[in-house]
Simulated scan of single mutants.
Amino acid sequence: MTRPVSIGLAQLGSPPGDAGVNRGATAEAAKLLFDQGAQLAVLPELAVPWYTVEPDEVARTAEPLWGPTVDAWAAVAADHSGLVVGGFCERDGEAFYNTAVVVDQTGVIGHYRKLHLFAGEKRCFTPGDRGLPVVETPVGRIGLCICYDLRFVEVVRVLALSGAELICVPSAWITGFDAERWDADGFCPQAHGALLQAKLSQVFIACASQVGALSGFEFLGSSLVIDSFGRVAAGPMSGTEDEQQVVTVDLDDVERAEDRGSLIRPQADRRTDVYGLSYDGSVL
């Protein structure tokens, strides 16, 4: 059995100053990926308005969930019968969230707010309150998280145990956590972490990062798609330039990765009688 899905990654930097221009750039990037055959287009973290941790900028540029960014992405999704995953700055009352959404032609079908705020994000964003959603879509079961969330191994494991086949990770990978930027093969440290997580939890992971020197940050790029065996399916992309790539994967590999032989089944071999992972009132 095969279940092919074409995933498009849009690695791009969102320059500060004009949210409308960046919104248009993300919509155009998604359109180009769909034109290349993608069924799902993944955009970076805070692609709209741009990556910022300045409280005044966040307050000025934040938008409601059902606002102009979702409208723009839904229009592109409708034109191409596809899905868009991307990150933007969300306002909900007096709170601001670093948000990722799954959007189809009707609008938002998956909604996530970043659980683990990184560094200066803690000064302007509210920690996420929507848990770790898994969304049933025409291309498969999609889980969501954002950037720094990948540093917490429980995130990918909860999503995988909750049925996610593909985890989409809008990112803005920056310097500061690790001294190294890229290794000889073009992987930034965050990309290496995603490789390991995919292998350990037998799940596909698609990371689309911002790139370039913008807003006082150096974004590392290195966007990539990893299969459920922990192998690179696409990328890593450039560490310094905007780039796009489409790759077709077989989501049935998730089931194959969970069965390495009659006596080797990584998920079934977990000792839940000794330990458990508590999530949403249940032990996984």
Rank of each mutant, 00 (worst) to 15 (best):
I205H: 06
S222V: 01
L224V: 02
G221C: 05
G193P: 00
L196E: 13
L220C: 07
I205R: 09
L195F: 01
A191R: 09
A198Q: 09
S215A: 15
I205L: 15
K199R: 14
E218V: 08
A213E: 15
V211N: 01
A206C: 07
C207V: 15
Q197K: 06
A208H: 01
S223Q: 05
V203M: 01
S209W: 02
A208G: 04
A191L: 12
A206H: 05
A198N: 07
Q197L: 15
A194M: 10
L196R: 15
G216K: 03
Q197H: 11
C207H: 01
S223H: 06
F219N: 02
A213W: 12
F204V: 04
V211Q: 05
S215V: 00
K199L: 10
P189M: 10
V211F: 05
S215H: 10
L195G: 09
S222N: 06
A194Y: 02
A213I: 14
Q202M: 13
L200N: 12
H192P: 00
L196V: 14
A206R: 01
K199C: 09
A191I: 03
L196C: 11
L214S: 06
L214H: 09
F217K: 04
I205N: 10
A213T: 14
A206P: 01
P189N: 11
A194E: 07
A213H: 14
